[in-house]
């Protein structure tokens, strides 16, 4: 969808030194967590290209979406100057979002149904077998692993998953306390889910990397009767996402990663945003971050292509 979206808010989040902002738009079509918008920051085509930003919150009832962004270079600087009431040309929602909530809630529902006496009457005998298998995993959790501003797209996912009754846990690493507080810590707190925070300087949460805390918690799970990790969704620096994938796959935990690449068209037409993936038959081929992603299955991404 190409639309002129009305800017409802465009304001600093938290400490101004962090350069983080919150942009609320009205007039965007139905969005799924993990999708992004390709935004024209200036009608004067300066800068020229659109800027991709993830959808961080979806308010279906009010037909509003919220984006969180960091002022980085020229494009985001110009975007920061857009005032409430003005309109922005927005392409999207674009891309394939996270597949987690739908699948997980299906599993949970199925496992719930398997205890329901109605199922037999409906005659779904073949599915019943599948249901029993799935119910083994009932009570599992969705884990989110974020590095820095990679946390932004994960918020929409968390909101949706929590809304569907899925247990969500966030692992989030940043440089220091002020960053985490500015980048939406209060939103996460309000969600009421368990948060595992790390900072490089130890000013908030555990000192170290977010993957350290992930490793600790995964090891704990392995040796206890805590509910299993059903799926992991991650977004952040490439190295961090690669580490998450390499840690989780041997444990048979599926991982979804949200990738970034420089974009031209945003719709799959220019091949600017290529990512190398391994097909099921092991051969290498390219996918497009804008159209096939930005969310990919962890095992398909070739990290050092």
């Amino acid at each position: 969808m190409l639309s002129m979206a009305t800017v409802l808010a465009n304001e600093t989040m938290g400490a101004p030194e962090e350069g983080l902002r919150r942009l609320v738009l009205r007039g965007i079509g139905a969005a799924r967590p993990g999708q992004f918008l390709h935004i024209q920051v200036s009608a004067h085509l300066e800068p020229l290209l659109r800027r991709p930003l993830s959808i961080a919150r979806i308010d279906k009832e009010r037909a509003e979406v919220t984006l969180f962004y960091r002022v980085q270079g020229r494009g985001t600087q110009v975007l920061a100057g857009v005032r409430p009431g003005e309109a922005l040309s927005v392409l999207g929602p674009l891309g394939q979002g996270f597949s987690l909530p739908a699948q997980l809630s299906q599993r949970l529902q199925l496992s719930h149904q398997s205890h329901s006496p109605n199922l037999g009457h409906q005659g779904h005998t073949r599915q019943q077998g599948e249901v029993r298998q799935d119910s083994v995993q009932a009570g599992g959790e969705l884990w989110l692993v974020a590095g820095g501003i990679g946390v932004f797209p994960l918020f929409a996912l968390a909101q949706e998953a929590v809304g569907q009754g899925i247990t969500v846990r966030l692992f989030w690493g940043g440089t220091h306390k002020r960053f985490l507080e500015s980048a939406g810590f209060s939103y996460w707190e309000a969600l009421g889910i368990p948060l595992h925070l790390t900072t490089l300087d130890g000013s908030f949460g555990r000192q170290g990397m977010v993957t350290d805390e992930l490793n600790t918690q995964l090891s704990l799970r392995a040796s206890s009767s805590l509910p299993p990790v059903l799926e992991v969704a991650t977004c952040g620096p490439r190295g961090m996402m690669q580490a998450v994938v390499e840690r989780c796959l041997p444990l048979d935990i599926p991982v979804e990663v949200s990738l970034e690449e420089r974009m031209g068209c945003g719709v799959g037409a220019c091949l600017g945003c290529s990512v190398t993936v391994r097909s099921d038959n092991k051969s290498l081929r390219n996918k497009k971050v804008c159209q096939d992603g930005p969310v990919f299955r962890g095992e398909e991404v070739v990290w050092n292509a």
Binding site: L49, M263, C270, G272, C273, V275, A305
Partner: peptide, 8 residues
């Protein structure tokens, strides 16, 4: 397969 990224 084309060139490595960044391509733009």
């Amino acid at each position: 397969l084309g060139n490595c990224v960044p391509r733009l």
